[in-house]
Simulated assay, not measured.
Amino acid sequence: MAASCTTTWRCAFLALLVLFVSGAHGQLSPTFYASTCPNLEAIVRSVMNTTVANEKRMGASLLRLHFHDCFVEGCDGSVLLDNVPATPTTPAFFGERNAFGNINSLRGFDVIAKIKTAVEQACPGVVSCADILTLAARDGTVLLGGPTWTVPLGRRDSTTASMDLANRDLPPPFANLTSPDGSGLIERFVRKGLSAAEMTVLSGAHTIGSAQCQNYRLRLYNEARIDFQFAEGLKANCPQNGPANDTFLAPLDSTGSTFDNKYYADLTSLRGLLHSDQVLYPQNNQTQVKIVLKYKGDNAAFFADFAAAMIKMGNLSPLTGTAGQIRTNCSIVNR
């Protein structure tokens, strides 16, 4: 199991960051459930151990699910809500699962439901789905060889979700690094209080997981900054014409399900799978290039900075105190 810090200064930095984040968000604390659900982390870890042993890709899927939750109105479990059909008195509800970046691609809802069932048996009505998802994302990362970090807890679950906000906020796979209209990666992350460096290190989550052909097809056939052999190897299963094969999966980096810094080496070789990956290593932005080269050359720095950025992202606009609720079923609002 990889550690989150390898030197004294990095360990001290992460410890201070946890204290800062916990203080900044008041009721969030690593010990929030110490008396009300003391075995919470062990329960989550047990389910995650079994899950990832059966399917390594699920570790990446849960990390992505957490990111897609946090980037839309904060880490509040809203991405977990099912659609609700219309009734004679209420309109239909279409949640974040229907957004462009989520529909037919987000996975792991069943794993969160399984963890929730186990947690409810031990501590009924105590632990939010938002906190369970945050812990599962951390444990999935660790189980694939990545860093660990201390998770501040105490989030509550939202009672609503927004497909429109998800379409607006989630970075698409064709996003540029920057854009005058504010749709670039840097602008999207800055609006969430995350810097270009933090955006780059969080993008390193693409060291694990896969993407569908429909999300990288245009890159294969229309971009010049792509390694020829890399592109040709992918085209066989992702044709430009003919059978679409939209859902064919390709690994996001060359080491597949191992969490490491190979993602950044792939970028420097012009082997980023998605357009939004490759733009992190531009021709005309030396500051950005230096960030990529830093993580390419220093796996320990990548792990430490990734852990710190995950703590920060995990504390985007959490619901605390009396806001929201503790859902009994993660996919349905309590009535």
Score class of each variant (00 low, 15 high):
residue 159 T to I: 07
residue 157 D to H: 13
residue 103 I to D: 01
residue 98 N to Y: 01
residue 164 D to P: 10
residue 106 L to C: 03
residue 111 V to R: 14
residue 103 I to A: 07
residue 152 P to V: 12
residue 148 T to S: 13
residue 103 I to K: 03
residue 118 A to W: 05
residue 102 N to V: 01
residue 139 D to Q: 15
residue 142 V to S: 02
residue 114 K to V: 06
residue 142 V to H: 06
residue 148 T to G: 12
residue 122 A to L: 03
residue 133 L to P: 15
residue 139 D to R: 14
residue 127 V to F: 05
residue 134 T to P: 15
residue 162 S to V: 09
residue 108 G to E: 01
residue 157 D to E: 10
residue 150 T to K: 14
residue 117 T to V: 11
residue 112 I to M: 01
residue 133 L to W: 10
residue 120 E to M: 08
residue 135 L to G: 15
residue 145 G to Y: 04
residue 101 G to C: 13
residue 149 W to H: 05
residue 118 A to C: 06
residue 143 L to W: 10
residue 103 I to M: 00
residue 108 G to S: 08
residue 162 S to D: 04
residue 151 V to I: 11
residue 114 K to N: 12
residue 120 E to C: 09
residue 159 T to W: 01
residue 129 C to P: 07
residue 138 R to V: 04
residue 113 A to G: 05
residue 108 G to M: 07
residue 149 W to Y: 13
residue 131 D to I: 15
residue 143 L to P: 09
residue 113 A to T: 04
residue 110 D to R: 03
residue 148 T to W: 10
residue 128 S to H: 07
residue 122 A to E: 09
residue 115 I to G: 14
residue 161 A to W: 00
residue 133 L to Y: 11
residue 165 L to Y: 03
residue 166 A to E: 10
residue 163 M to Y: 05
residue 122 A to R: 02
residue 151 V to P: 13
residue 146 G to Y: 14
residue 117 T to P: 01
residue 137 A to Q: 02
residue 122 A to H: 05
residue 122 A to Q: 08
residue 165 L to V: 06
residue 109 F to I: 08
residue 152 P to S: 08
residue 164 D to S: 09
residue 118 A to N: 13
residue 107 R to W: 00
residue 134 T to M: 15
residue 163 M to R: 05
residue 136 A to K: 07
residue 121 Q to L: 11
residue 133 L to T: 13
residue 117 T to S: 13
residue 118 A to V: 07
residue 126 V to T: 13
residue 151 V to D: 13
residue 141 T to K: 12
residue 143 L to I: 04
residue 147 P to N: 11
residue 116 K to G: 00
residue 141 T to N: 12
residue 121 Q to P: 01
residue 111 V to P: 04
residue 163 M to F: 08
residue 115 I to E: 08
residue 96 E to Q: 06
residue 114 K to I: 02
residue 104 N to D: 11
residue 126 V to A: 08
residue 124 P to N: 07
residue 131 D to N: 12
residue 143 L to E: 03
residue 138 R to K: 12
residue 131 D to G: 14
residue 164 D to Y: 03
residue 145 G to K: 04
residue 119 V to P: 03
residue 127 V to C: 03
residue 116 K to L: 00
residue 150 T to Q: 14
residue 132 I to P: 15
residue 110 D to L: 04
residue 141 T to P: 15
residue 155 R to D: 02
residue 104 N to Q: 14
residue 111 V to N: 10
residue 97 R to Q: 08
residue 135 L to W: 11
residue 110 D to Q: 02
residue 142 V to Y: 07
residue 114 K to P: 06
residue 99 A to F: 01
residue 141 T to I: 14
residue 132 I to M: 09
residue 111 V to E: 04
residue 150 T to Y: 11
residue 140 G to Y: 15
residue 103 I to H: 03
residue 109 F to S: 04
residue 131 D to K: 15
residue 121 Q to A: 10
residue 135 L to R: 15
residue 136 A to W: 04
residue 133 L to H: 12
